[in-house]
């Protein structure tokens, strides 16, 4: 079986939660949600996952399915307390992300009178300063990967460093998964580094789709591992029989 690009993305998102233990895997976006549930069904069985709403499901459920048996309750207010508590690793989206992992979901253009008003900061400031945070970005392009974000909703490594080690002790940016590649903030001075490119993608394509220089590890850039037979079966037959992933990351 050959994995589609979307399926490679799901498996790469799942890897974000490897080794996290018994924490909430909070996910936004189809491949991220599927990744959290795939991780729980395979190598990270202690993770907690939701129905996309206030319910912690007893087992990972298919995308868009009713919750089935429930093992816990996490209404929005408790979710916000959990951000401060820290037993949570969130994978968010970003409309802009810069070289230090500052992210913007608030507004494009000058904040006082934006060219394009987006969601607002939502939970991004608290998420990034309080608990492990990763990103899932379904369209890797220079529109998203920008030299400077217009509004820092999510806190990057440079801003965290400026706060000092005490205030930033829970700041922990993990990985950035896109439709082209996997990256992290492990480059010099907490800058973005290219960890792997998805099968069929070249390093040059990723560099061209990124609006700032990328660090590259000494060993070069390997290919993102494809999901194995069992992972593919779980993605296709169990978690996403409706194929929502393919709509998010086409062919």
């Amino acid at each position: 079986m050959t994995a589609t690009r979307a399926e490679v993305c799901v498996a790469a998102c799942a890897e974000a939660w490897r080794g996290d233990g018994e924490v909430l895997a909070a996910a936004m976006g189809v491949c991220s949600v599927l990744g959290a549930r795939l991780a729980r069904m395979t190598f990270a069985p202690d993770l907690l996952t939701t129905d996309g709403g206030a319910l912690l499901t007893a087992a990972p459920i298919p995308y868009g399915a009713p919750p089935g048996p429930v093992e816990g309750w996490l209404p929005f207010r408790d979710h916000l307390w959990l951000v401060l508590n820290g037993r949570r690793h969130v994978m968010m989206g970003a409309s802009q992300i810069d070289r230090h992992g500052n992210t913007n979901i608030s507004a494009i253009g000058p904040w006082a009178r934006p060219r394009s008003q987006l969601l607002g900061s939502r939970g991004a400031p608290g998420n990034t300063i309080c608990c492990p945070t990763s990103y899932w970005i379904p369209r890797h392009s220079t529109r998203v990967f920008v030299p400077e974000v217009d509004m820092a909703s999510g806190v990057g490594t440079d801003r965290a460093a400026a706060l000092g080690p005490r205030a930033a002790r829970f700041h922990d940016l993990r990985r950035v998964v896109t439709d082209l590649a996997v990256l992290d903030l492990g480059g010099p001075g907490g800058t973005m580094r290219l960890l792997s490119v998805h099968p069929g993608v070249t390093v040059d394509e990723v560099v061209a789709a990124t609006g700032f220089p990328l660090a590259i590890g000494p060993g070069g850039v390997p290919e993102t591992p494809e999901p194995g037979e069992e992972e593919l079966r779980l993605i296709r037959d169990v978690l996403d029989p409706g194929g929502a992933r393919e709509a998010e990351v086409p062919g």
Partner: peptide, 13 residues
């Protein structure tokens, strides 16, 4: 008091 907001542009705007 809360940690949420520290380091972000929510304080700038």
């Amino acid at each position: 008091p809360t940690r949420a907001g520290l380091g972000s542009d929510v304080l700038r705007v």
